[in-house]
Measured scan of single mutants.
Amino acid sequence: TFTSYQLEELEKVFQKTHYPDVYAREQLAMRTDLTEARVQVWFQNRRA
């Protein structure tokens, strides 16, 4: 599960791009204290 802060950050990036590159995902992962893999999976699920 994600915190409301994490979801907010993820959604913010999703609004800009549905396909963030690895750099964007790593920045987001650091900001949200998630792994890059978790961020990647979240985007895959969000796009589905």
Rank of each mutant, 00 (worst) to 15 (best):
Arg47Val: 08
Pro20Gln: 02
Val13Glu: 10
Arg38Asn: 15
Glu11Ile: 13
Glu11Tyr: 06
Thr35Trp: 03
Ser4Ala: 13
Gln6Gly: 02
Met30His: 11
Tyr5Phe: 12
Ala37Ile: 11
Asp21Arg: 04
Phe14Asp: 05
Phe2Ala: 02
Thr35Glu: 06
Thr17Trp: 07
Glu11Trp: 04
Phe43His: 00
Ala29Asn: 15
Asp21Gln: 03
Asp21Tyr: 02
Trp42Asp: 02
Leu28Phe: 09
Gln44Ser: 09
Trp42Thr: 15
Ala37Gly: 09
Ala24Tyr: 06
Ala37Asn: 08
Thr17Pro: 00
Gln44Val: 09
Glu9Pro: 00
Lys12Asn: 06
Leu34Met: 08
Arg31Asp: 05
Leu28Cys: 02
Lys12Leu: 08
Arg31Met: 09
Lys12Ile: 07
Glu9Arg: 03
Tyr19Asp: 05
Glu8Pro: 15
Arg25Val: 15
Val39Glu: 00
Tyr23Thr: 11
Ser4Arg: 12
Ala48Asp: 10
Val22Glu: 11
Pro20Asn: 01
Glu8Ala: 11
Asp33Phe: 09
Arg47Ile: 07
Glu26Val: 11
Glu8Arg: 10
Glu36Tyr: 06
Asp33Leu: 10
Arg38Ile: 15
Lys16Leu: 12
Phe14Asn: 15
Thr3Gln: 06
Thr1Glu: 13
Glu26Ile: 13
Ser4Cys: 13
Lys16Tyr: 10
Glu26Arg: 13
Ala48Phe: 08
Ala29Val: 06
Ser4Val: 12
Ala24Gly: 05
Glu26Cys: 14
Arg25Thr: 10
Arg25Gly: 02
Leu7Phe: 04
Glu8Phe: 09
Val41His: 14
Ala48Glu: 11
Glu36Phe: 07
Phe14Leu: 02
Arg38Cys: 14
Thr17Met: 08
Val41Gln: 15
Leu28Arg: 13
Gln40Ser: 12
Asn45Ser: 10
Leu10Thr: 00
Thr3Pro: 02
Leu34Lys: 00
Val22Tyr: 14
Phe2Asn: 02
Arg38Ser: 13
Lys16Asp: 08
Ser4Gly: 08
Glu26Lys: 14
Leu7Gln: 07
Arg31Ile: 12
Arg31His: 06
Glu36Cys: 07
Gln40Arg: 14
Gln40Lys: 15
Thr32Ser: 04
Gln40Trp: 10
Val41Leu: 14
Arg31Pro: 00
Gln27Gly: 05
Gln27Met: 12
Thr35His: 04
Met30Val: 10
Asp21Asn: 10
Gln15His: 08
Ala48Pro: 03
Gln44His: 09
Lys12Asp: 04
Val13Thr: 07
Lys12Met: 08
Glu9Thr: 05
Asp33Pro: 12
Tyr23Phe: 13
Asn45Cys: 13
Leu7Thr: 07
Glu26Tyr: 13
Val41Thr: 12
Ser4Asn: 10
Gln15Met: 10
Trp42Asn: 00
Ala48Arg: 11
Val13Pro: 00
Glu11Asp: 04
Val39Ile: 15
Lys16Val: 13
Leu10Gly: 00
Asn45Lys: 11
Tyr23Asn: 14
Asn45Pro: 00
Phe2Gly: 02
Val13Asp: 02
Thr3Gly: 03
Ala48Trp: 07
Gln15Leu: 12
Asp33Arg: 09
Asn45Leu: 10
Glu26Gly: 09
Thr1Phe: 11
Phe2Leu: 14
Trp42Ile: 03
Leu28Gln: 00
Val22Gly: 08
Val22Gln: 15
Asp21Ala: 04
Ala48Cys: 10
Ala24Lys: 04
Glu36Ala: 10
His18Val: 06
Asp33Glu: 11
Tyr23Lys: 12
Val13Ser: 07
Arg31Val: 10
Gln27Asn: 07
Gln27Leu: 12
Glu36Gln: 08
His18Gly: 05
Arg38Tyr: 09
Pro20Ile: 05
Gln40Pro: 01
Glu8Val: 08
Gln6Arg: 00
Thr1Leu: 12
Gln6Glu: 04
Lys12Tyr: 05
Lys16Gln: 13
Val41Arg: 12
Gln44Arg: 08
Glu11Ala: 04
Lys12Ala: 08
Arg46Ile: 02
Asn45Ile: 10
Asp21Lys: 04
Gln44Asn: 11
Lys12Thr: 06
Thr1His: 12
Arg47Ser: 04
Ala48Met: 12
Val39Thr: 02
Tyr23Val: 14
Phe43Lys: 00
Thr3Tyr: 05
Phe2Tyr: 12
Thr32Arg: 00
His18Tyr: 05
Leu34Gln: 03
Glu8Lys: 09
Gln44Met: 10
Val22Trp: 11
Gln6Met: 04
Leu7Cys: 07
Glu8Asn: 09
Leu10Val: 03
Phe43Thr: 00
Val41Phe: 14
Glu36Lys: 06
Asp33Gly: 15
His18Thr: 07
Ala37Val: 08
Ala29Ser: 06
Thr17Asn: 13
Leu10Ser: 00
Thr32Glu: 01
Trp42Val: 15
Lys12Trp: 05
Thr17Cys: 13
Leu10Ala: 01
Tyr19Phe: 11
Leu7Ala: 14
Ala37Tyr: 10
Ala48Leu: 13
Pro20Leu: 07
Val13Asn: 02
Met30Arg: 15
Asp33His: 12
Glu8Gly: 08
Gln27Ala: 12
Gln15Asn: 09
Tyr19Thr: 05
Arg31Cys: 06
Phe2Met: 10
Leu34Ala: 03
Leu34Glu: 01
Thr1Asp: 12
Glu36Val: 13
Thr35Asn: 06
Lys12Cys: 07
Phe14Arg: 01
Gln6Pro: 01
Ala37Arg: 09
Glu11Ser: 03
Trp42Phe: 03
Trp42Arg: 00
Met30Ala: 12
Arg31Asn: 06
Val41Ala: 14
Tyr19Trp: 14
Phe2Gln: 02
Tyr5Ala: 09
Phe2Ile: 07
Phe43Pro: 02
Met30Thr: 09
Gln44Trp: 06
Leu28His: 02
Arg31Trp: 05
Glu9Met: 09
Thr1Ser: 13
Thr35Gly: 04
Glu11His: 03
Asn45Asp: 14
Thr35Ala: 05
Tyr23Arg: 13
Thr1Asn: 12
Arg46Ala: 07
Gln15Cys: 07
Asp21Leu: 03
Glu26His: 13
Asn45Phe: 09
Trp42Tyr: 04
Gln6Asn: 02
Asp33Gln: 13
Ala29Trp: 04
Glu36Thr: 08
Thr35Ser: 15
Ala37Lys: 08
His18Met: 12
Thr35Cys: 05
Arg31Leu: 12
Leu7Lys: 05
Gln27Tyr: 07
His18Ile: 09
Tyr19Met: 04
Trp42Gly: 00
Arg25His: 03
Glu8Trp: 08
Phe2Arg: 01
Gln27Glu: 14
Asp21Met: 02
Thr32Asp: 01
Tyr23Cys: 13
Leu7Trp: 10
Tyr23Asp: 10
Thr1Pro: 12
Val41Pro: 01
Gln40Leu: 14
Met30Ile: 12
Leu34Thr: 05
Thr3Cys: 06
Gln44Glu: 15
Phe43Asp: 01
Thr17Val: 06
Ala48His: 09
Ala24Glu: 15
Thr1Tyr: 13
Val22Ala: 14
Arg46Glu: 04
Met30Leu: 13
Glu26Asn: 11
Leu28Ser: 01
Asp21Phe: 15
Tyr5Ser: 08
Asp33Thr: 06
Met30Gln: 11
Leu7Arg: 06
Ser4Lys: 14
Asn45Trp: 14
Gln6Ile: 04
Thr32Ile: 15
Tyr5Val: 07
Glu9Gly: 02
Arg47Lys: 03
Ala29Asp: 15
Phe2Ser: 15
Ala24Cys: 15
Glu11Gly: 02
Ser4Trp: 11
Phe14Ser: 00
Pro20Lys: 06
Thr3Val: 03
Arg25Pro: 02
Gln40Ala: 15
Arg46Tyr: 02
Phe14Cys: 01
Ala24Gln: 14
Tyr23Gln: 14
Thr3Leu: 08
Pro20His: 03
Glu26Met: 14
Lys16Phe: 10
Trp42Gln: 00
Asn45Gly: 07
Lys12Ser: 07
Arg47Met: 04
Ala29Met: 09
Tyr19Leu: 03
Val39Asn: 01
Ala29Lys: 05
Arg38Trp: 11
Val39Ala: 01
Thr32Asn: 03
Arg38Glu: 15
Thr3Ile: 06
Asn45Arg: 13
Phe43Met: 04
Phe14Val: 01
Lys16Thr: 12
Glu9Tyr: 04
Phe2His: 03
Ala48Asn: 11
Val39Lys: 01
Tyr23Leu: 13
Gln44Phe: 07
Trp42His: 01
Lys12Val: 07
Ser4Leu: 11
Thr32Met: 09
Glu26Pro: 02
Ser4Glu: 13
His18Ser: 08
Glu26Gln: 14
Leu34Asp: 01
Phe14Lys: 00
Gln27Ser: 08
Thr3His: 06
Tyr23Trp: 12
Trp42Met: 13
Val39Ser: 12
Asp33Val: 05
Thr1Trp: 12
Arg25Ser: 04
Val22Ser: 12
Lys12Arg: 10
Asp21His: 05
Glu9Trp: 06
Glu36Trp: 06
Phe14Gln: 01
Thr17Leu: 05
Gln15Phe: 06
Val39Pro: 01
Leu10Asp: 00
Arg31Tyr: 06
Gln15Asp: 07
Glu9Cys: 07
Lys16Met: 14
Asp33Lys: 12
Leu7Met: 07
Gln44Ile: 09
Val13Cys: 08
Val39Arg: 00
Tyr23Met: 10
Gln27Cys: 09
Gln6Ala: 05
Arg25Met: 14
Arg47Leu: 08
Leu10Pro: 00
Arg47Asp: 02
Gln40Ile: 11
Tyr23Ile: 11
His18Trp: 13
His18Phe: 09
Gln40Val: 09
Leu10His: 01
Val13Tyr: 09
Phe43Val: 01
Tyr5Asp: 08
Leu34Gly: 01
Val22Thr: 11
Glu26Asp: 06
Thr35Pro: 07
Leu7Asp: 04
Val13Leu: 15
Glu26Ser: 09
Glu9Lys: 03
Glu8Asp: 15
Arg25Ala: 05
Lys12Glu: 11
Asp21Gly: 08
Leu10Tyr: 00
Ala29Arg: 06
Glu8Leu: 11
Ala48Tyr: 07
Glu8His: 08
Arg46Asp: 01
Gln40Phe: 10
Phe43Cys: 03
Glu11Arg: 03
Tyr23His: 13
Phe2Asp: 02
Tyr5His: 07
Phe43Leu: 03
Ser4His: 13
Thr17Lys: 03
Gln15Thr: 07
Thr32Val: 12
Thr3Asp: 05
Ser4Thr: 12
Val22Lys: 15
Tyr19Ile: 03
Thr17Ala: 05
Glu26Phe: 10
Asp33Cys: 14
Ser4Pro: 14
Ala48Lys: 11
Leu7Ile: 13
Gln44Asp: 10
Gln27Ile: 09
Tyr19Ser: 04
Val13Trp: 07
